[in-house]
Structures are given as structure tokens and as C-alpha cells.
Simulated assay, not measured.
Amino acid sequence: MSRALAAVHAAGVPAAYAEVRDGGRRWSGAAGVADLATGRPARPDLRHRVGSITKSFVATTVLQLVAEGKVGLDDPIGRWLPDLVPGELGQRVTVRMLLNHTSGIGNYTNALLDTLAEVISVGTATFTPEDLVRIGLSLPPTGAPGERYSYSNTGYILAGLLIEKVTGHDATAEVTRRVIGPLGLRDTYFPGADPAIRGPHAGAHFALLGVRDFARYGMTWAWTAGELISTPSDLDTFYRALFGGRLLPPAQLAQMRTTVPMDPQAPEAGGYGLGVYWLPTPCGQRWGHDGGVIGQITVSLHAPDASRQMSLATNLSHYQIGLPEEHPIDTAWLAAVVAGVCPGAAATRAAGGPPLALPLPGALPLPRG
């Protein structure tokens, strides 16, 4: 794994850092520099924005409320948030559809982070969750409710507002009380309106703007869809508890693992459940999530029982500039992921396609202008 991280760094990423667990054994390591401006060396325990991995924490919280009989997965969201999602749409879109991305509601970040100027300005702006939902609802629908998978951050902002409606508490505080606190995840937290990453942390390098560090960057635009800060070790602890049955009763964990195809034309390429997905690998299905924000990328993948785990992070994003070929960083990243989740397996492409259909860091949408 050390060689795999070094290869990611050598391919052009300032730093790569990871933790791998195999039963009771644990390995962590890093390669490269955390901050291009200072040359500060990377460490595996640096705090890092984990983006959409936030969704696993939020979905877990919603499913705990389901287990307590406080909300139903097939409740229409309009029953709980009639002012935000009124009328027929509110009656047709269910809580389940929000969590498995089949609601058909547009993805607000497609509009919010559309240009380079917006990428810069969003980090200094303050958004309310209601602002974000309205942006998503103003976009063309991606399909009829329940029709098909189409990734939408808007659904997870609505999930956060649902948590608040059901519990009467701030959504991020409720996730912290139910999940982060009980697991003792000392390096995992929601920053809220604070643009800084508290404590030792990695830089966040946005390739289109060179060495500029976006670690100080307001995240109110992400909230319960992608605001969380964590470390590879804390992520492994969380997913081991989740998939090991410590956070959800069996019925709700089974619902979480009930998936829809992420690509209807290739259902074997992976399925999305409720805040988690599975991907095919050379050693079978692996479960977890990935996250990408401005300047930082994370993936956390685990055996179904979390006996083998890997969480990997890098501090560079948006380096793919429209080249038709796979970027060398992506090739090295894929190899590192396979090395982590399937020791001894090769990350070579077979005739049927890649052995791991992971969203690669270079595939993040590029802002225009």
C-alpha cells in the first residue's frame, strides 16, 4: 500500500493518505506534501473534507428515526415539508427516493458550481438549506419520482430538513448526537459556517488555480449533502460500526443495502442504496461512498461485513482538463484503491471494462469560464 500511495503522489497529486484495516490489523500511511505552498509533509491523521461521504452519516440518522417509528421510508416528503415541496411533487417523492437518488429532483450543485468564478465565490457566501432546495427544484427534473437513479445533492438537503422537522433539533447536531459522538469520532465534525478546518489538516488544491489552498472555504453550500470533515481512521471506524450492525437494527440495515442500479444499462457496475453504494471489485462487492469537494477527494470502501476496509484521501481535485484519455492520477488512484480493498489483485483493465467502476477524481465536473 505504501508503494501505491507513492505512485499516486508521483502521478501528480501533492499528497495521498490512507488507512487500511484487515480484521484486527491496521495500517496507515501517507505520501507527499499536505500543503504545496509550505511543503509540509502529509500524515495519515490529517483532517480532510470528505464531501458526499456525509450522506452515509445522514442516511444512518434517518434510518434510526425510521427504526424508532418516527418517520417512514415511504412517507411523501410533502407530508413533512409541505411548504418546500408542495403539491403533486411533494406527494409523489418519498423519503426513500431522496436517500437513493430516485426522486427526479435536480442537483442544485450543477447550478451553484457552474463556473470558475462561482467556485471561488461560493466559498465566501452563506446559504440556508432552503436556498439550496429552491435551486434544486428550479432545475429541470431528471425523471419522474422513482423512475431511475440520478444523483442529487438536493435530496440530502431535504433529508437534513426532514431530520430537523422530525426531531426538532439541528440536523448536524442530531447526526453528531446519534452517530459521531457515540462512536468517539474525535476528528469528525460539521464545520457549519466556519470556513476553517480545525486542527491539523490537509491543504485543498484546486488544479485550475495552481497552488492556491482552498482548505479555508465556506461549506454552507453543502450542509447535510457534503459538509463533513473527518479522517481515514474515523471513516473506517464509522463504516465498521455501520456494516457491523452497531448503528442500525437488521431491518433498517437491510433497507440501506437495498439498491437501485447506478447505470440502468450496466446494473453489474454498481448499485446505490440509502446513503451507501456497492461496487464490483476483483474480490467481490465492496460497500461505502466517495466524496469530492474543491481541492479534496476521498473514497471509503469496505467488505460487506467491514472485515477488510480502506479509506483513501488526496488533496487535489479538477486536474482532468478534458483529455479523452484516463489521467495518470486516475490510473494510480484506481490501483491504490484496489490495493487497499483487494490485496494481491491487479488493477488492470479487462476486456469487459475496469475491475472497479469507481467515480475517478479526474471525472469531477469542470466549471466553465
Rank of each mutant, 00 (worst) to 15 (best):
N315E: 12
G136Q: 02
F190T: 02
T348V: 14
I197F: 09
P267L: 08
P145H: 12
S307N: 07
G271L: 02
P141T: 09
W287G: 00
S121T: 06
P129K: 00
D213K: 14
D194M: 05
P145N: 11
W278Q: 00
G340P: 01
G72H: 10
L334K: 15
R148L: 08
V166D: 05
E19A: 02
T124R: 15
R349M: 07
H9K: 05
M219D: 05
A336C: 08
G29E: 04
C342N: 03
E164H: 06
V299S: 08
L137Q: 04
T126S: 01
L65N: 09
A34L: 14
P365F: 09
L99K: 11
I105G: 09
E88I: 06
L208A: 15
A351T: 13
A30I: 07
I229K: 13
P86R: 09
H201L: 14
D330Y: 08
F238V: 05
T259I: 07
A215N: 06
L364T: 13
P140I: 05
T281I: 00
H169Y: 14
A111N: 01
A67R: 04
D290C: 05
W80Y: 13
G72T: 09
P140M: 03
W80E: 10
T61D: 15
G340Y: 04
E147T: 06
R43V: 09
R308H: 07
P86L: 07
H101C: 04
A207Q: 11
D236H: 01
L162D: 07
L99M: 13
A306G: 00
V13L: 11
T142G: 06
L73G: 08
H318D: 10
Q265I: 05
R212K: 11
A193W: 04
D22E: 06
G344Q: 10
G362Y: 08
G184F: 06
Q285N: 05
T188M: 08
S2N: 12
A363T: 15
T38C: 10
P324M: 06
V50N: 14
A222R: 08
V179T: 11
G29S: 04
G275T: 00
Y319R: 12
R43K: 14
G90F: 09
I157Q: 02
E227N: 04
I157Y: 05
M219P: 04
V293F: 12
G146H: 11
A222F: 06
G23T: 04
L235A: 03
P264I: 02
Q309P: 01
D234G: 04
W80L: 09
V175M: 10
G295S: 09
M219S: 13
H289T: 03
W223N: 02
R216Y: 04
E19G: 00
V341Y: 07
R240H: 02
A254Q: 07
P264R: 13
M219L: 13
A15Y: 12
F243L: 10
I297M: 12
G12C: 09
I105W: 15
H201F: 11
V338D: 06
K70P: 03
R47H: 15
L253V: 01
D114S: 03
T60A: 12
R186N: 09
T258Y: 01
E326V: 15
M219A: 13
Y151C: 05
T102A: 06
P249W: 01
M219I: 02
L112P: 01
P354Y: 15
R25E: 14
A207T: 10
E19N: 02
P195T: 03
F214P: 05
H327M: 08
D234P: 02
M1H: 05
